[in-house]
Design a protein around this nucleic acid. Sequence first.
DNA 1: CGTTAATTTGATGGGTATCAATTTTGGTGG
DNA 2: CCACCAAAATTGATACCCATCAAATTAACG
Lengths: 266, 266
Amino acid sequence: MSVPIAVMTARGESALVLKLRQFVELSSEEAAILGALGTPRRRLPPGETLVEQGAGPVAAVLLHDGWAIRHRTLRDGRRQIIDFLLPGDLCDPSSFVTTRADFSVTAISPVTCASVEAQEVLALLTRSPRLGAMLWWLESQEEFVMRAHLVAVGRLSAYERVAYLIWELWTRLRAVHRAHDHSFEMQATQDMIADATGLSQVHVSRTLNRLERAGVIQRAERQYRILEPAQLMALAQVDEQRVSSRLPERIARLLENRHPAGRAEE
Amino acid sequence: MSVPIAVMTARGESALVLKLRQFVELSSEEAAILGALGTPRRRLPPGETLVEQGAGPVAAVLLHDGWAIRHRTLRDGRRQIIDFLLPGDLCDPSSFVTTRADFSVTAISPVTCASVEAQEVLALLTRSPRLGAMLWWLESQEEFVMRAHLVAVGRLSAYERVAYLIWELWTRLRAVHRAHDHSFEMQATQDMIADATGLSQVHVSRTLNRLERAGVIQRAERQYRILEPAQLMALAQVDEQRVSSRLPERIARLLENRHPAGRAEE
DNA sequence: CGTTAATTTGATGGGTATCAATTTTGGTGG
DNA sequence: CCACCAAAATTGATACCCATCAAATTAACG
């Protein structure tokens, strides 16, 4: 099985594959299968809706490149951004058990993305438990991020929350080679940062300026540069532990044994 | 295959089975397998830790009866409750891809619970895709709840947030027959409600009193009674849609076809 | 180079936190 | 069953973080 040309972006390897490699070794066959996931690709401009709150049934969204937000809007217009979707993110891999979305997904930069339908996910699951485990890992990463986000919104001060968000985005972008030199291109407006952190746009502006005056970060155009990673991490209240979230060897071995399928009866 | 005696609680059917039945029909064989999940059971008093933040590797926790909280504590003592675990909840079914927990789980009432180890989950997955889908559904429900929680903490006022939490607990308890007559037994102290909603305990007290004076709820001992469900829902900003989250027929049929296992090669 | 979106800055008010008692509740043992 | 004690909830006073309103300034984009 050869690797489809379309898998490669201008930047190199598929972001999904990059993301998964921090978790587990991929055989070239596995990389090929995962690289072929989410074709055909669509290119969409910022502002375009990928998933509409209330619509259904929904497919998972695989983001190859660009940024999107997953958000929910209340009747009176208040909005909460659930999370940012970055290259390599598979949004809601368990969408196949859902009848309608309780959130929207909107591109906030030009994106390359694709829908991953239920049968594609199920085919992967039955084909190889190891690939199935990778989808579960993607989902559990999504949850990990959401939990951290919830802690930030619920218990951190404005200053800490904004620091947290910058740290999170920076960390995730590095994993898919979208950050260089302690800096990355911020695609979110202050309005979006506000809706993600539960603050007002005005206060986000003040807070970013405060972080800059304190010498923690530096901004120019849309480039954010992290001057003091240690300080940022301390503010964000993160303990470095995500990096160590590799597939446990114990489990990897369990998954090797029963390669294509399991036993029928006990 | 006969149904193990231990599956039945004093209250009737296993809470997990009750919870799943709102989503999909269960054959008696499936109910038996799921009922046998999470044995042996342990009984633990309130305050006991089921999962320790930072420890690993971790097994999923199946709560048969009682309440627990999933929470994270910062170095300076601030705490955020991620969610409440109620009877029938399987906390972190994807724990088998994780090396260490980023949260703790603590009983807040006398509980009956069990650990579900990685191989148990994997065995279920390979045995029947349909049972696997149910685990995914449990996980996606967990995410659904967390998203709603995040929206509440990020964008609702204190008054609305507390209303939201009461509504959520009430709704989930009804699903597993732990609520009667528009009322339920609240196991969370105001301190916990505060840590779940991102408020202070003092303000939670004031807010509950305000809800009571407004005639929305009524409290006596630990019983919370919902006097105005419509008003509570409106405050909580929920659109009734979760009930409709049944396994789509389309998917159910896909899952029937490939019963015990899938094909090896395409 | 114009036009709109995004950001910055200032002034003011309000929703919650915090501090500090006091009262009530619930569990426990006599 | 009641007395006792610790935990939980209530109440009041004060302070402050952040929202809101309103303009002005800067950046982005065709």
